[in-house]
Design a protein around this nucleic acid. Structure first.
Length: 559
RNA sequence: UGGGGAUUGGUGUAACGGUAGCACGACUGACUCUGGAUCAGUUAGUCUAGGUUCGAAUCCUAGAUCCCCAGCCA
């Protein structure tokens, strides 16, 4: 039995444990900025950080990296906590970088006193200009102020004496460093803004680089795991900690998640919401945790997905079908089966007695014998799926057609003997069939076979419902694949939501509550939407079942 | 033109100088009262060129390609 594969971060931790680098501790953290909703990419990070802590018997904190009050909001703080919990994780400590602002301020004075930080009066444009280009930058004229003047100015910045943007506190490092992050990075900027967590206590706010490492240090984090784009920041992370002479965690970078047919940047997710391309952060088409949850995904499926895709430093793009496979796999085992007809086609069983009703036993879950059975009513007038009948069936189509016999699941074999059509459009509006009483329950005593088994509902007993069919938000695997001059919005899928309002479901669904998940046999997995009410059910399609016929059919069309 | 990373089947991911493996997909077939599920099989890969070595995905040299960095965002 080969040892299970370990990713590079586990190997680093193993090594640190062996050398006793952190006294045998493992302490991670998930550090979101509360400026948006969490998405599936964050789930990867959450599973990684909390998963590592669990695996090594360590701890994992949830810390809000709330250093930019103009973008942050209490709504996001609450949503993030809900999402982390929903994913199945419990943090050891709940912290806010903003609770460290006083300590951070004291440390800033320490650096000033050490001659390693200075107050700079350059405008934002000048700072950019002085930072220079690939060849090098030039030093700020304010770089060599005296310690006393710096201290005085910095205290007055804190006291609110200066307007936004007029001054900054910068670290004195190296204006010619090939790493731009070391060209005297800004530590504090003046921002007279109310903060969602600490209110109006501050008018100077620390930059990410100045806050993050020290926050990790305060919390005793051992392994500070972040995404690849922060690799360039690690020298600065290390520089601040060393300059301060405080406990020094280890920053490790991994590749963030990319998925086909969607976007995962916060900026774009905000745009989708604010520009009305979706109905909100929890729109089931969104790759947000809230959207995916509403769509009907399970936390187990998401965790399995995060495990499957692995952790590495290669910038990969994961095919979204991998995510879909995970939810199918999970729901296949757990979701109760029911019958529901999305696009109803009326079927009259000519030789079935008027007014008669029979009840058939239906298996709730073939993957789980303990799920038991339920009764499904059958009568003379039924609905089947429009897709399940073709007047002239193409090759390899083996559902219902004139003269053909199929099985109605759990009920009878029926044969199509006629149809009524709309005189104007020619569309088939009603089917006439006969049933074979000898096939009661679904098997023929003479052992004859049928090639198809259809789902159905009894017209008189069916529940009417709305069903929302979701498809990918974008029409191309890479939403950025656009003609010159256009952007990802050009690839928005106009069919990403199709609402069906005339669906018919078996009566056992009458008591279904928001969040309940089912497999509609032969169609897919569906979940009751929060908009649903007794008597006015609303379902979201989580994902279709694997559909071999659809594949055959689209291959035929291509020919 | 500077710096930091990366590169293994279609997509991900292992192999840590010694048989290139696994998962997903795709394709066959079996089975099936879901064209679902399940089972069996097939397919297909080390970025390039040199070198070291009995032996290289792995080490060395040169090159190619891709990603990130010049916010008072994170």
């Amino acid at each position: 039995m080969p040892a299970p594969a370990r990713h590079f971060i586990q190997e680093i931790i193993d090594e640190d444990l062996k050398t006793g680098k952190f006294g045998g501790r493992v302490h991670t953290r998930f550090p979101p900025e509360p400026n948006g909703y969490l998405h599936i990419g964050h789930a990867k990070s959450i599973c990684l950080n909390f998963g590592l802590a669990a695996e090594y018997g360590g701890k994992c904190n949830l810390r809000f990296d709330d250093t930019n009050p103009v973008k942050e909001d209490i709504e996001y703080i609450n949503a993030i906590m809900e999402d982390v919990r929903w994913l199945g994780f419990q943090w050891d400590g709940l912290y806010y970088a903003s609770d460290y602002f006083e300590q951070l301020y004291q440390w800033a004075e320490q650096l000033i006193r050490a001659g390693k930080a200075y107050v700079c009066d350059l405008t934002p444009e000048q700072v950019a200009e002085y930072r220079g280009d690939l060849k090098g930058g030039k030093e700020s004229p304010y770089r060599n102020r005296s310690i006393e003047e710096n201290l005085d100015l910095f205290r007055r910045m804190r006291a609110g004496e200066f307007p936004d943007g007029s001054r900054t506190l910068r670290a004195k490092i190296d204006m010619n460093s090939p790493n731009f992050n070391l060209r005297d990075p800004v530590m504090y900027r003046i921002l007279h803004a109310e903060h969602p967590h600490v209110g109006n206590k501050w008018c100077i706010y620390p930059m990410y680089d100045w806050a993050h490492g020290q926050s990790d240090s305060i919390e005793g984090i051992t392994h500070s795991i972040c995404t690849l784009e922060f690799e360039n920041h690690r020298p600065l992370y290390d520089w601040f900690l060393d300059a301060l002479g405080i406990y020094h965690p280890r920053q490790i970078e991994f590749a963030r998640l990319n998925l086909t047919y969607t976007v995962l940047s916060k900026r774009r997710l905000v745009e989708l919401v604010t520009e009305g391309h979706v109905k909100g952060w929890d729109d089931p088409r969104m790759p947000t945790i809230a959207g995916i949850r509403r769509r009907g995904y399970t936390p187990e499926a998401i965790r399995q997905f995060c495990k499957d895709i692995g952790v590495a430093k290669f910038n990969s793009v994961i095919d979204i079908s991998r995510l879909e496979n995970c939810v199918r796999d999970d729901l296949n085992r757990r979701a109760p089966r029911v019958m529901g007809v999305l696009r109803p086609l009326k079927v009259v069983i000519d030789n079935y007695p008027e007014g008669q009703v029979e009840e058939f036993d239906a298996v709730n879950n073939p993957e789980d014998a303990s799920a038991g059975t339920r009764k499904v009513p059958f009568s003379k007038v039924l609905y089947i799926e429009q897709e399940d009948f073709r007047e002239s069936p193409p090759k390899d189509y083996f559902r219902l057609a004139p003269g053909r016999e199929v099985r109605l699941r759990y009920a009878y074999f029926i044969k199509c003997v006629g149809m009524t059509k709309d005189e104007k459009t020619g569309a088939v509006t009603e089917l006439h069939c006969t049933y074979d009483p000898a096939t009661r329950g679904g098997n023929a005593p003479d052992n004859r076979k049928v090639k198809a088994t259809l789902h159905w509902v009894s017209a008189a007993h069916a529940l009417k419902a709305e069903v929302r069919l979701y498809d990918y938000l974008f029409t191309k695997p890479d939403p950025d694949d656009v003609p010159e001059g256009q952007d990802y919005r050009a690839n928005l899928n106009p069919q990403s939501l199709v609402t069906l309002t005339d669906c018919r479901l078996e009566p056992s669904l009458a008591a279904a509550k928001p969040g309940d998940r089912f497999q509609f046999e032969r169609l897919g997995y569906f979940c009751v939407d929060p908009d649903s009410k007794p008597g006015a059910l609303v379902f979201n399609r989580t994902v279709t079942l694997r559909d071999t016929w659809a594949k055959i059919e689209s291959a035929q069309k291509k020919k």
